[in-house]
């Protein structure tokens, strides 16, 4: 892979740009991160971005957070990784702590509790939609559907530890299926 066609961004620029992404990113940060990195700053080409994202989706941990670490590290080493990730998380963590404090204080007020009830139902529905969307490509793959149903039953019905579910199902799925591409 060729190096990025720009001078490496400064630490302050990594911090500021990822901070903007974090604070603008309502309902999913990824599209905002892509726009900033590929279109506005041109830190990566579209293909390089997709490649780096594939790495971050392959590894454990929150994907966009990993992406900020990998990109900051590529440009400026450990200090760059720290600048990018603290920019990305600093603002949102502060916002959510304020929300948590308000929740702790007013959760017993009836209309606040009712509002949260509606919000929680909607948030659950959004996760359901996300699940259906990522399940759609498995439609004609019975083995994959079997693995997904087993994982669902393991964590949601039997309430098994995730480590156990992963240790049993991931190797089984790797042996049973052929890589698609």
């Amino acid at each position: 892979m060729t190096p990025p066609p720009v001078d490496p961004p400064r630490l302050s620029s990594l911090f500021a740009n990822f901070a903007a992404v974090g604070l603008l990113g309502f309902g999913g940060v990824l599209p905002f991160a892509r726009r900033m990195i590929v279109e506005r700053r041109r830190w990566l080409s579209a293909a390089e971005f997709t490649d780096l994202l594939a790495l971050c989706q392959f590894l454990p941990g929150p994907n966009v957070v990993n992406l900020s670490v990998a990109l900051g590290g590529r440009f400026r080493g450990p200090a760059g990784a720290l600048a990018a990730v603290s920019g990305l998380l600093g603002g949102p963590v502060a916002v959510v702590i304020v929300l948590g404090a308000v929740y702790g204080r007013y959760a017993s007020v009836p209309w606040v509790a009712h509002m949260l009830g509606g919000l929680a139902a909607a948030a659950s529905g959004l996760v359901l939609a996300t699940a259906l969307r990522i399940a759609a490509p498995l439609r004609r793959r019975p083995v994959a559907i079997g693995v997904a149903v087993a994982a669902l039953a393991g964590v949601a019905v039997l309430r098994l530890p995730l480590l156990l579910v992963l240790l049993v199902l991931a190797p089984a799925a790797m042996l049973l299926q052929r890589p698609s591409a």
Binding site: F58, G117, A120, A121, A123, S124, G125, V127, L128, T130, A131, I134, A135, L138, R141, V143, A144, I145, V147, A148, V149, A150, A151, L152, G154, V155, A156, L162, V165, L166, L169, A170, P171, A172, A173, M174, L175, L176, Q177, R178, P179, S180
Partner: peptide
């Protein structure tokens, strides 16, 4: 590894949806 993890991930996110819906 990726091909094996994908359906597991789908099942886990579906599990998250079931648990959150049950609680909310």
């Amino acid at each position: 590894v990726q091909a094996g993890l994908t359906p597991v991930t789908v099942g886990l996110v579906m599990g998250a949806a079931v648990l959150l819906c049950r609680a909310s």
